[in-house]
Amino acid sequence: MVTCVEHLEWQVVNKIDHTREVINLISQKTDRVILFYSGGKDSIMLLNQVAPKFKEVVLVFMYLVPNLRHVDIYLKDALNRYPNVKLIQKPHWILTYIRKSGNYCIADPKVKLKKLKDVDDEVREETGIEYSIFGMKKADSLNRRLMLQGYNMEAINEKTNRVYPLSLWTNKEVLRFIRDNNLPKPIAYNKKASSGVMLEKDCFEYLQKNYPDDLEKIYDAFPMSRVILFGK
């Protein structure tokens, strides 16, 4: 009789095989790739699998506010841990929506809205790299599931050269892989699946407790965001 643990182990083994197969396919086409890196669980696991397979991996970190100490810890660790890794930092595309709408700042209607694709295109033009790797998974949301379902092996968009090696994984499986392989514990502002600095209460409470200097940098960039913790 197969136990739940054994079944989970079987699933993870098959999913890591799938992930490695996807990465190997790309490594046969190029020795340089872009990897969108947030310091979250998916990007930490992906970097561990991608770095050994390519001559150069260009990490793209998208910031809401630059030079936050608790984020720099992860960026420096990635650069030190993998000698073939380089780093490019870009303003997060979501900043264009924040600035245009005036969310916790003065609205600027002249701001041109961007998408993730626009940041990816910019980095590709700057580096000359053809393939970009992302940590998106079908389990993340219904939209992600629908998006990935139509791709080759549910992982490779052959029209855009965008690659999703973790498409079949769940959050719990990724976290288990990180734990079992002694990788850095990912940034986590709350118990939810999402990661990354956001103008939200959970993130602000975490920073207030652990990195108050980073919270002040966010206040400097978005003065009106002080109301998020108003009354605390």
Rank of each mutant, 00 (worst) to 15 (best):
V2N: 07
V2I: 14
C4D: 14
L8N: 12
W10Q: 14
I16E: 10
T19Q: 07
E21V: 00
I23Y: 06
I26A: 03
D31W: 00
V33H: 00
I34R: 04
Y37K: 01
S38C: 09
K41H: 11
D42Q: 06
S43F: 02
S43K: 00
I44Q: 01
M45H: 01
L47E: 05
Q49I: 11
Q49M: 15
A51K: 06
P52T: 11
K53P: 00
K53E: 14
F54Q: 03
V57D: 11
V57M: 08
V58Q: 04
V65N: 01
L68F: 04
V71R: 03
V71N: 06
L75F: 09
D77A: 13
Q89R: 15
P91M: 08
P91S: 10
N103K: 09
I106A: 09
D108S: 07
V111G: 03
L113C: 05
L113F: 04
K117L: 04
D118M: 03
V119P: 05
E122L: 08
R124N: 05
R124Q: 04
E125F: 04
E126K: 14
I129P: 03
I133Q: 06
G135D: 08
M136K: 09
K138V: 01
K138M: 15
A139W: 01
S141C: 07
R144N: 14
R145E: 14
M147W: 01
G150T: 15
G150D: 13
Y151L: 15
E154I: 06
A155G: 14
I156C: 07
I156S: 06
E158W: 01
K159H: 10
L166V: 07
E173P: 10
L175T: 00
R179H: 12
I187Y: 07
A188L: 01
Y189E: 09
S194E: 11
S194D: 10
S195E: 13
K201L: 10
K201A: 13
E205R: 14
Y206M: 11
Q208D: 11
D213F: 02
I218N: 10
Y219T: 08
D220Q: 12
A221C: 11
P223F: 03
P223S: 05
M224K: 14
M224H: 11
V227H: 00
I228S: 02
I228K: 01
I228F: 04
L229N: 05
L229F: 03
G231I: 02
K232P: 04
